[in-house]
Design a protein around this nucleic acid. Structure first.
Lengths: 209, 209
DNA sequence: GATTTCACTAAACATTTGTATAGTACAACT
DNA sequence: AGTTGTACTATACAAATGTTTAGTGAAATC
């Protein structure tokens, strides 16, 4: 490829500040804001540093314009990136593949919440019933589930039972897995062989009234 | 379900231009650039339109700063509309006005979750401590709060006590309001006169492991 | 019919901001 | 030994930009 041009310690500090400012304030700083941050008594110092960073290819400047520093690699969206997660309809099909096809719009989820999921397929659904109140999940809540995650004990899973999506906790007794409803009123332990686990719940979203 | 605050044809055109400019130029336009584009002979026309859009909650302005127009909504697609909610830093200032200024990046929230907030200011913060486990809110959870909502009894509120943000339930005993921690370990009832209620929690987001 | 909102013009002011000139000091190459 | 690059100060100008006061006319709302 190409070897990056080395930066001095100070130039690295300046560049770090530029990124930080852009992320926080959602705009580029002015030379005076840079100077103030570093305690420079002249704006020329800041301008010189930015000029050096431009020469070395770390940024572009839109000459004449205020706040014209353009950090090339940082898009505005990188601060606020969302993933469109398909919403599961009320009567979903069986397999995870079909789930995505039966979608009912999408739900936007901030990547801060899910991190690096790779190519995993996610889906969203709105909770009905109160089988999961024991884990703080109530009717009307939204859950985001990962269709490709490997289930582990104590995971909150989306399972398909009799054509309906239900939320259960994946439990284990000795060597056998079961599904458990987190509500004392329910006592349904269902062996995992009788059903399909469609996804592992990663995020729960509650609207508070 | 919810109706958005309506825009006039001209205001829609202005908003479209703001999105277009931000996308192309990677920065917000100035009032003169807006005026030039539309052929306005006074910058006041542009400023008035932007002011109207701010009042209707379609954008925020960073007063005094050049290119200080901050488009909150990222996408204009009706399917996947998100609002950028400023994230509160760890040591926030007192009044709701100052909250927005101390922002630390933004958090994207699907409008499906919030409905019509009008021009209410929202903010996001990550929960520390376990004072709200009784209401299913744990350390690490995200909460989205409305800085302009009117507090009611039993509301989950963000309150500023001794320079720290804490979550409490707004409770009432006879005619006086108090703040209650939803954890049997805590028993702190604080009269509302001694503190500032910064916002009413509308959404809680939990990452499930 | 009165008031408010919308959509601007016109002119000006104040601040913010980019840019320039002139210079100091030091370290690193060539 | 001389040049180049780094890292600034000090001052200042001019352009860019936000903001304000004062107004007009039409459309919408009360």
């Amino acid at each position: 490829m190409f070897s990056e041009i080395k930066l001095t310690i100070r130039q690295t500090q300046i560049l770090d500040f530029l990124f930080e400012f852009q992320l926080k304030e959602r705009m580029a700083p002015t030379y005076r804001e840079i100077a103030d941050h570093f305690g420079f008594k002249s704006t020329k110092a800041a301008a010189d540093h930015v000029s050096a960073l431009e020469k070395k290819g770390y940024l572009r400047r839109h000459g004449g314009r205020s706040r014209g520093i353009d950090l090339i690699t940082l898009t505005r969206q990188s601060d606020q990136k969302v993933i469109g997660v398909p919403i599961l309809g009320d009567i979903p099909a069986g397999t995870p593949e079909q789930i995505i096809e039966k979608q009912n719009g999408t739900f936007a989820v901030d990547v801060k919440l899910i991190g690096n999921i790779g190519h995993h397929r996610l889906f969203a659904l709105q909770v009905r019933g109160d089988s999961m109140v024991g884990r703080g999940i109530h009717a009307g809540d939204w859950v985001i589930a990962d269709a490709d995650a490997v289930p582990h004990e104590n995971n909150l899973v989306v399972a398909l039972i009799d054509g309906e999506n239900t939320l259960k906790t994946l439990a284990r007794k000795e060597r056998r897995y079961y599904l458990k409803a987190e509500n004392p009123d329910y006592n349904d332990w269902i062996p995992v062989t009788e059903l399909i686990i469609q996804g592992i719940v990663k995020i729960a979203i509650r609207q508070i009234y």
